[in-house]
Design a protein around this nucleic acid. Structure first.
Lengths: 149, 149
DNA sequence: CAAATTTATATCGTTCACGATGCAAAAGTA
DNA sequence: TACTTTTGCATCGTGAACGATATAAATTTG
């Protein structure tokens, strides 16, 4: 079969792409009540670990371009979740910090990871098997960071 | 640590999301010369397997909503890759078929899967390890299809 | 120190992704 | 057959992603 490789079933990327979209979809029931999207949730995760970071650091941790993160942060500022202030030493930088609302949302989001785990277990079964993918995904991601340069 | 679970490193979804984006990025060098995007490439994969399918079938195979696929197909029609004709038995349907250009692109795309494998091997190492994720991803995807209903 | 380069962020245009809604055709029902 | 419901697709609005480009500040270089 000359075109065997072009069959959809043989495509790893298609599976990653689909799994990522569906997983994001599984966050919807928990993020909608908070009024945030999944990428916004990721930004909050970063800021909850360490508040007051420049745009670049956030983008780097999320493996996103700043031209994706900037509008994301602007929407989050509009929603009252973060503040963006000019950097003191380097005035080119925009330091992103959590507002009271952003800080308080951490408490409301506390149980989201376990809720998601429960949802996945319910319909899929094995958390162990899924967890085994993590080191492989990390290697793949590190390799692809090189490829995409 | 009360908020341990909220650390980014513990998030499976973030890895899927990042791996999917970076893998799509790895297709760029091969899809750009053909003038198509990754989702458009997926549509072509589906049509190369079987030509002349209604919008619904394509959307279902790609696990996408029709309101994502319809504009995608409209752009592909504009680019001269597919034709969209009214269904004969069911006139609500739009049957999507490949144009000459769409058919011929299969030949040009023939080596993309092996090129991508090569790229991944180069910077990551083990195709075996990555291939092992496939059955797990399939189970995850099937489970999430249930969850997201 | 002045000029060239790099860096941090922002803006713009295009393409997804998807919830909500609309609409006409088909199918089911009274 | 008339009415209701379902189905297949399209449209609209919003929020990502990201390449290309812009701009100002910092850094490097001559």
């Amino acid at each position: 079969m000359e075109y065997e490789q072009l069959k959809l079933d043989n495509q790893l990327c298609f599976r990653l792409y689909t799994a990522a979209r569906l997983t994001m979809g599984a966050y919807h029931p928990y993020l909608d009540p908070l009024g945030i999207t999944y990428p916004q949730y990721l930004v909050l995760l970063v800021l909850w670990e360490q508040d007051k970071q420049p745009v670049n650091d956030i983008a780097h941790k999320l493996v996103l371009e700043t031209n994706t993160v900037t509008p994301l942060l602007q929407r989050m500022e509009k929603a009252g979740l973060v503040k963006r202030t000019k950097g003191k030493e380097d005035t080119r930088q925009r330091i992103v910090s959590l507002t009271k609302k952003g800080i308080e949302m951490r408490e409301q989001a506390k149980h989201i990871p376990e809720c998601l785990s429960a949802d996945i277990i319910k319909n899929e079964g094995s958390v162990e098997e899924i967890s085994q993918m993590i080191p492989t995904l990390d290697k793949l991601i590190e390799g692809l960071k090189q490829t995409n340069n």
